[in-house]
Amino acid sequence: MNKIIITTSICLTLIISLSSCQQDKKLPFYGERHAETVRDAAGIEKIDTVYQTIPNWSFLNQDSVVTTNKLTDGKVYIADFFFTSCTTICPTMHRNLLTVYNDFQNNPDVMFVSHTIDFKYDKPSALKKYAKKLGVEGPRWTFLYGSKDSIYTIAEKSYLVAVGEDNKAKDGYIHQGYLVLVDKDRHIRGAYDGTKVEQVDQLKKDISILLAEKK
């Protein structure tokens, strides 16, 4: 009799712990973090973790309209860095990103933000032409143009993607092909190599996990 009780309780514990695991499925937070003392609604002091946050930004979009972080605030978005005349990794990145874009086409809470790092040539009109030729129209995928300083700073300091000019590189620039997953509170929750199909598939799964996280 004792044996039966023990086995049942072990089984129960296992089942409970397994099911709680599933509920807890959460994505990690990337970047630096620090502890901060905050007051909650009742005025009691608490220690809270503050994660790396994408700062306010303001760039021109492909229609030459000033676009700010208001576009993506409260939404999940995928950010990347590219340039239109890039013949190395960008076409593969955007071919793969296009499959993500199509998979979530009925979800307005998933947005795409591509920044050009070619501040000389990729003016908004060039971005507009590129977007059209890629087959992207509408506000869900935005292509952003900014000064060299502003784009390179936000890439390296905020999105943690290395970019740079390089006269020796075939197209004049070097950059990493990361697709950066950002949550509704502007925290980085994932980074995926946009040139690898497996990692892009993982991105699709992680977007769904992020969307399912408690609001």
């Binding site: 076409p91 955007h94 071919r95 590129y130 059209k132 030729k133 890629l134 087959g135």
Partner: peptide, 11 residues
């Protein structure tokens, strides 16, 4: 592309 499918109107 892997299957020679091109890329939009770009390639």
């Amino acid at each position: 592309g892997e299957k020679g499918e091109g890329l939009g109107e770009l390639a």
